[in-house]
Amino acid sequence: MDNNVFLISVISMGGIGAFFGIVLAYASKKFAIKVDPRIEQINEALPGANCGACGYPGCSGFAEAIVEGEAPVDGCPVGGREVAEKIAGIMGVEASATQERSVARLYCQGDCEVAVDRALYDGVQDCRAAQAVNGGPKACKYGCLGFGTCAEVCPFDAITMDENHLPHVDIEKCTGCGKCVQACPRNLFELVGVSKEVHVGCKSQERGKDVMKVCKAGCIGCRKCVKACPFDAMKFKNNLAKIDYEKCTSCMVCVEVCPTNATYSDFDKRKKAVITDECIGCTLCKKVCPVEAITGEVKVKHQVDPEKCIGCSLCFEKCPKDAIKMIREE
């Protein structure tokens, strides 16, 4: 009897289980919904931070939008080029070649040492709150308030506040998500291509004299940079120099002439052209050089004067034999 009950139990339970197992296995085949496998692949290629910088609800929403053709393959500002190329590979299209990684840059150098305060602010330690109280404590109406709201909103810890209350963007960590651009009440952040080395660190539209009163590092509107730029990349509007990044080659000539260092760059990153033995002496580079740093005769290997070379890379682009290399000076 006992044996019998045991057997019946096993058989009936096993039977029910097997029956439903088979039915479910059959149903999963029969009623399978075709989900585009590319959605899953793209989702894996994306960074997975779900930051929403692309404008879609999370990475999976973005992946669906790409497959439906709504979003561009390079629409993820965080993943940048690398991810865009992966997605383009999955979708079978070319990623637009000009797209480079954008990073946030701060357009103010007025820390608490060089820029004066006009009042004592004792309220909520937040730039947006300070801005609401009669424009905040800074004497400059355009400058950084220095309460670090940008550093707080940065989801990637790329912004740190220095001891003089000025934010610094770590361009290695910055993904160009644009959170700080939105958060800054004075619109001091802009997203710029990572290869751009020269920046005008001032947004003040006051006249030079008024700028000098409130800040030692502001643009005073002397236009020296505009005259010095060999590429017509420096624009001047509303008492303020502004770089046209389409034209700028990061040659840093403007930085050399700026009297207040409002236009700044890192000279260590300046590149120099070096001509290799591939040179056939066509003189094209000599003609294109804006500072006459290249010398040489026809059909003889040309030479670059490193003292004169500003690293604009015009010759590098012009050379038909790829005989010119841009090398960063040590």
């Binding site: 009950v5 139990s9 009936s12 339970m13 439903f20 039915v23 479910l24 149903a27 009623f31």
Partner: peptide
């Protein structure tokens, strides 16, 4: 089969779960 005393819970769960899964697919 005289199993209602001790196989009730497990078989109910098994059947309900699979059935709902099936209906969900449909």
């Amino acid at each position: 089969f005289g199993l209602e005393r001790f196989l009730q819970i497990v078989s109910f769960i098994l059947v309900i779960a699979s059935l709902v899964q099936f209906v969900e697919m449909v």
